[in-house]
């Protein structure tokens, strides 16, 4: 079910501005890969190219290849909508749909894609909420608005919503940066459970978090503002944090950066 991702020679543009240059890497299935690096180095941008969300931004385009189990996501005949059903995403700020109840939020991906069978939807809602460790907290108020939950609960609701469509890969763009430490812990535990079934890629500014949750870590950097960001190195998390190959990585990890 979980799939591997191979990126080769990826250049990412915003209009004429080259934001990221020459990224090549392999993301292992059933493992957590963390993207770390300073602000503006393009780690979120790279993440968004993995499910073709980058092109939603006006002027956003990509050169190079992103292979999902050998299939190029940017081939001409590939439908971006189909890609996004296979590669789910969780965003930095919790963003439940404000007009929908908790139940409808979780079921949104299926419902909006035409699934009407109520028994099936209820089953998926329960399974996804349990998968996101939220079931016990919300099972008595599934018909209350999703926006009424706390920030941490909302983020787990968004994770439940993302896994309800049964993606193969889960992308997380700084999923804990708007949350308190307790909620962050809940999400990190959840990531540990989810990696048994999904390929997970997480962008984080928190190096301890990268060290705690990830199996491999990719360090991105940029030479100067206005220059494109680059992948400096990708290796197992213990190698990156204990004995990185590149000096720039060591400087960043140890806080001697810049």
């Amino acid at each position: 079910m979980a799939k591997r991702i191979d990126v080769s020679d990826l250049d990412i543009f915003y209009g004429s501005f080259k934001a990221v240059e020459g990224v090549s890497m392999s993301i292992e299935p059933r493992a957590v890969t963390a993207f770390i690096g300073p602000s503006g180095c393009g780690k979120s941008t790279v993440l968004r190219t993995l499910n073709r969300m980058h092109e939603v931004i006006p002027g956003g385009r990509v050169e190079g290849k992103v292979l999902l189990d050998g299939q190029d996501l940017y081939a001409k005949d590939v439908d971006p909508v189909g890609v996004r059903r296979t590669v789910g995403m969780v965003f930095q700020r919790p963003n439940p749909f404000p007009t929908m109840t908790i139940r409808d939020n979780v079921a949104a991906g299926l419902k909006l894609n035409g699934v009407k069978n109520k028994a099936r939807l209820d089953e998926v809602v329960e399974k996804s909420l349990k998968g996101a460790n939220l079931w016990n907290e919300v099972k008595d108020r599934l018909d209350k608005p999703g926006a009424g939950l706390s920030g941490g609960q909302q983020q787990r609701l968004c994770i439940a919503r993302a896994i309800a469509v049964e993606p193969q890969v889960l992308l997380m763009d700084e999923p804990c940066s708007a949350l308190d430490p307790i909620s962050t812990l809940a999400i990190e535990d959840l990531i540990n459970e989810l990696k048994e079934r999904y390929t997970i890629v997480i962008v984080t500014h928190n190096m301890q978090q990268a060290a705690r949750v990830s199996d491999q870590t990719a360090f991105f950097n940029l030479k100067a503002t206005g220059q494109p960001g680059k992948l400096v190195e990708l290796d197992s998390t213990s190698k990156i944090f204990n004995n990185p190959t590149e000096k720039a990585t060591e400087d960043y990890i140890s806080g001697r950066f810049g």
Binding site: V81, R84, F91, F97, L112, N113, A162
Partner: peptide, 26 residues
């Protein structure tokens, strides 16, 4: 908020459906 549109896109909801089921109701 744009985040709501992106949330729907990321679930594999087509753009027109996102507009009619998420943006307009909001």
């Amino acid at each position: 908020p744009n985040e709501l549109r992106e949330a729907a896109y990321a679930l594999g909801v087509p753009k027109w459906k996102t507009i009619f089921s998420v943006v307009l109701p909001t």
